[in-house]
Amino acid sequence: MNARRYMLEVRGLGKTFGETEVLKAIDLNVSEGELVFIIGPSGSGKSTMLRCCNRLEEPTSGAILIDNARITDIPRRDLDRMRLNVGMVFQGFHLYPHMSVIKNVILAQIKALKRPADEARQRGMELLDQVGLGHKADAMPSELSGGQQQRVAIARALALDPKVMLFDEPTSALDPELVGSVLKVMKDLRDKGMTMLVVSHEMAFAREAADRVVFMDGGYVVEAGTPDEIFGNPKSDRLKSFLSRVSGGAH
């Protein structure tokens, strides 16, 4: 695995909100084509870390590299171009309610990537088919279930051909029976070789699909390893107690 190059590198990342130190010198690498899972109790800084990776949150210290480019050095006015390389999927979907599904997927392709309209449409349809929603292209977001909305949101992010995909608790807002369809899309994506960093509570999915699992608590990376190491043989007390607390709902 070390033979592969790093697609995302987080070096000594720190973040404070006012007086509170949310992230304390985080180090984390994601290789090309790797799926890295981040777990941890709420308030452990997982989401903040993820949001620093496309600078929706501004890091206080440290550096982040995407495909060997230091995105933490980019001046604010050039952020838009960098963000084309980093896809993001939110807990709350955030589809644009006033646009049809296909328009949601096309908008940034045309406005930010400057793709010609017909090409953007074609790529959009391809991706909607890939997430199993080609037939809903002309529906409005309000007509879709939560799981369908989230799959459209994934297609919207993929449409920009990003180098890395960030998932911020993508299934937390979904009814249990809708979670599976979203996880399946993520699994397909991984099998196609997409580099992915996922914050989620879906432990079963982490076991099955993750290359590596990172456990964060109190703004630190406490432990990292393969799913077998993390779930089968946790070393730190904090991880053990976290796992025993969540295991009730994991299977």
């Binding site: 929706l56 084309l84 644009y96 940034a108 406005k111 930010a112 949101a153 992010a157």
Partner: peptide
Amino acid sequence: GQWEAGRATGLS
């Protein structure tokens, strides 16, 4: 969230 979704896809 609407703003973030837009900015995250590279829109100004």
